[in-house]
């Protein structure tokens, strides 16, 4: 199935862009008339993914985060991509309460929130650089 609309966005891995990215995603998704709760779900999931890219992917160093949003008649697909260090053990990273950065007071709930707020979450990673 081909998307009815698509947007690509690239931004520097600054934490101030977390709000920017989730607002862009929400504004774009609004085209298929989601309810307020669905919009909040998308915003939260995007915020988690972008935060992961900035904190863990680039470890707060400067890099580019790419976001691709695809709209279908009754669905939305959002990809958040970084080219940072990669995730060594995806299964472990997805476990609730697991965090590689307890020193930063990270809760380890990012993937759990994404999984609860979206219907499906796919994680693809390679250490030393993400897959295309």
């Amino acid at each position: 199935m081909n998307p009815i609309n698509e947007v690509k966005l690239e931004f520097v891995s600054k934490s101030s862009n977390e709000a920017f990215a989730r607002v862009v995603a929400a504004a774009f998704v609004s085209q298929i008339d989601p309810n307020i709760e669905e919009l909040a779900d998308v915003k939260t999931a995007v915020s988690e993914a972008v935060t992961n890219a900035i904190i863990h992917g680039y470890e707060n160093k400067t890099g580019l985060v790419k976001m691709i949003c695809k709209l279908y008649e009754d669905a939305v697909e959002i990809s958040v991509i970084d080219e940072g260090k990669g995730i060594e053990d995806i299964e472990k990273a997805r476990q609730p309460m697991f965090t590689s950065r307890p020193d930063m007071e990270r809760s380890g709930m990012g993937f759990t929130v994404m999984e609860n707020f979206m219907d499906r979450v796919e994680v693809v990673s390679e250490v030393g650089g993400v897959l295309p």
Binding site: T44, E48, T51, M104, E105, S107, M109, T112, V113
Partner: peptide, 13 residues
């Protein structure tokens, strides 16, 4: 008006 899991870290800390 918005909170993600970063809020959990702040509260638990």
């Amino acid at each position: 008006t918005f909170m993600d899991s970063s809020g959990i870290g702040v509260i638990m800390g």
